[in-house]
Design a protein around this nucleic acid. Structure first.
Lengths: 218, 218
DNA sequence: GTGGTCAATGACCAGGCGGTCACCCTAACC
DNA sequence: GGTTAGGGTGACCGCCTGGTCATTGACCAC
């Protein structure tokens, strides 16, 4: 579940790790399923089986708790991007893309709740931190893809006259959509992307890679 | 603002059209800016300058009011798709795509609030109607794009071995992302897509069309 | 006038929210 | 054994929500 070092009051950080986990797990699941505004501190308290007073001694406010949870989600997402970049260095560009996409699926399998929070953040402007954090998240993945494309240009694997930043944004949006459809029902209308496996998933990966590398033209 | 024939109680439908407009305008703006759950009937009442009792005589519940607003948004979106299809018939495939995209920008310029509601619906699963409506919206635009691609195959403008449905989903997701970034700040990191015009917008349209038709490969 | 119809109104309700605080219990120290 | 410190607790606060309903007043037919 992560270390979560910098979040919460000193009291919370000195807590018995099991209890800390229980509280965090409750908060993550509540924020993931309801988003920020509609998540209820009362529910968190009930799920974590602690008293309301305690929760507010661990985190000064709802906003504080949410910030902590988001911080954890972002940290894990960053780790994952870093790992993918490292593992896939040396592959061809399409292979890297495939690796990135499949690693995304795996990340969602491993951390479905964190993924949910992450997408909540990317999508809805509802969160209370001044757009700044959202912008950062987008920049992060956009720039990662821009670097990938930049390196691919260097290797002669993609056209050199490309509008790198805009292409990166577009390809990234494709990735995000596919990941979202992978963990959200009824997005890709019944074509087996949601929680897809094996051959179903392969077809989607192929469609994605073909579109990105060859486009639709003959 | 639309006719809104089938929504609200009989009392509401027999209302003086100006008043009806005022109420609807208030509801649209409130739902657009806060989404379903966080929109407040009290706010609607205040904006529309009517009493709370009246609003609940016009619409039996918050859910009722929201359904009415969504119905209107969906109807307008359908009209727009139909118009685009008609106007662009006979064009080449890339031209049709460009037309579709630019018409999307224009739609947002004309109906920014409806667009906001529409995207809210497409994105967040927060709305209270059982996923059914969301699935329908997606099907609608996915199928429209699938037909476009199907016709293009018929004309030999795109590869015949294409996975039509999955490609349609992916291209549609690109369109949606661009439209969302067009009306939402800080999505496309400062590359002039947000409320973009002229040359800024052209660059994005070009990047999109190139990706879709040629892909990234040399 | 009078009685009846009907839309408009806002005080009111129960319930849920984020957040507080006075009190409780335990454990450590002299 | 008495005192002190600190985490644990849930009743409580003010606020806001979606929704109700008794009352009001304008209009109309007789």
């Amino acid at each position: 579940m992560g270390l979560f070092l910098s979040s919460g009051t000193r009291l919370f950080q000195n807590l018995n790790p099991e209890k800390r986990e229980k509280v965090l797990r409750a908060a993550v699941s509540e924020f993931a399923s309801k988003g920020y505004r509609n998540a209820s501190m009362n529910t968190v308290v009930r799920i974590a089986q602690i008293s309301k007073g305690s929760l507010f001694q661990y985190f000064r406010s709802k906003r504080d708790l949410f910030d902590g949870v988001v911080e954890m989600a972002v940290r894990e997402a960053k780790d994952y991007l870093r790992a993918v970049r490292h593992q896939s260095s040396g592959m061809t560009f399409p292979d890297r893309l495939e690796h990135l996409l499949r690693a995304g699926f795996a990340f969602i399998d491993d951390h479905p709740l964190l993924a949910r929070i992450y997408f909540h953040l990317l999508q809805s402007g509802e969160a209370p931190f001044g757009a700044e954090r959202i912008r950062m998240l987008h920049r992060m993945s956009d720039e990662f893809l821009a670097e990938l494309i930049g390196e691919a240009i260097h290797m002669g694997e993609v056209r050199a006259d490309l509008d790198v930043e805009r292409s990166a944004f577009l390809v990234n949006s494709l990735l995000e959509t596919m990941l979202r459809a992978y963990y959200t029902e009824h997005l890709a209308s019944g074509l087996g992307l949601y929680k897809g496996k094996g051959e179903d998933l392969d077809r989607w990966v192929r469609a994605f890679l073909e579109l990105v590398s060859k486009g639709l033209a003959p």
